[in-house]
């Protein structure tokens, strides 16, 4: 099978905060239509890596390349404008607006008025957000807010999706729904998903990248990683 094209690449990417090497010389590759999970203990540097990809942080050194364009240090909106859908770890919504308005703003960036409205309707059906469509999102429960954020990503139809802990704080049922959704998004887009929830990762994952102290410790299938004594040590060492 021919290898698919590399769509996201980091070269020697580093992000230091004073003496803290949150991301340290990371070489990473994601290919077209790939679904990659990033795991690692708290403070491993996953979110920092994620923020370098999305332009929220300007890396100390190294490069971020998206579809052969060097995007290092570009503004977030320039990266998103390539067709990248982003969900950050901290909930990031328009709290004073309704769920529909939130989705519309995301979709309208890419589509004309009519298409945007259709996409918003479809997304609401697909994510079963009908009941909360006109609710102000600031007043919704955490899991529902997460769903609205996912909806914002879906409604824009991005070709590359970056999700930081999409299932955090969700009920089991919501987690399951999210895993399904992620797999469905993967039919048309490449994804990078940062997650802690092992069940969630098992449900969706193909290749998993394990971060440890700012570097990639291992990159393999989830079964292989769970069977590896060193990898288990990294997780267990931080769990207690």
């Amino acid at each position: 099978m021919a290898r698919r094209e590399v769509v996201v690449e980091t070269r020697n990417l580093s992000m230091h905060f004073g003496g803290v090497r949150a991301v340290d010389n990371v070489d990473f590759e994601l290919r077209e239509k790939e679904l990659r999970c990033l795991i690692g203990p708290n403070g491993a540097g996953k979110s920092t890596f994620f923020k370098c990809l999305t332009g929220q942080l300007r890396p100390t050194s190294g490069d971020v390349v998206i579809r052969d364009i060097i995007m290092t240090g570009r503004e977030s909106h320039e990266i998103a404008s390539l067709g990248v859908g982003i969900k950050t770890q901290v909930p990031n919504l328009f709290d004073g607006l309704t769920a529909v308005e939130n989705l519309w703003l995301s979709s309208r960036r890419w589509h004309g008025d009519r298409r945007a409205n259709t996409l918003v309707k479809e997304t609401i059906d697909r994510l079963e957000l009908g009941e909360i469509r006109s609710s102000i999102v600031g007043s919704l429960a955490h899991g529902q807010r997460q769903m609205v954020e996912l909806g914002m990503v879906v409604a824009a139809e991005p070709w590359l999706v970056l999700l930081d802990e999409p299932a955090a704080g969700m009920t089991e049922e919501e987690t399951f729904k999210t895993a399904e959704l992620v797999r469905e998004i993967n039919k048309t887009s490449a994804l990078i998903v940062v997650e802690h929830d092992m069940n969630f990762i098992r449900a969706i994952s193909d290749i998993v990248t394990l971060f440890h102290q700012g570097s990639i410790f291992m990159e393999d299938k989830m079964d292989v990683i769970s069977a590896d004594p060193n990898a288990r040590e990294i997780y267990l060492g931080h769990k207690t």
Binding site: T54, Q56, E75, S76, H77, A80, S81, V84, I86, T88, N92, L93, F94, D95, G96, L97, L105, S106, R109, W110, M152, A156
Partner: peptide, 10 residues
């Protein structure tokens, strides 16, 4: 409402 979010939408 949220400038960072708007920016991240492109």
């Amino acid at each position: 409402e949220n400038e960072v979010r708007t920016e991240l939408l492109g």
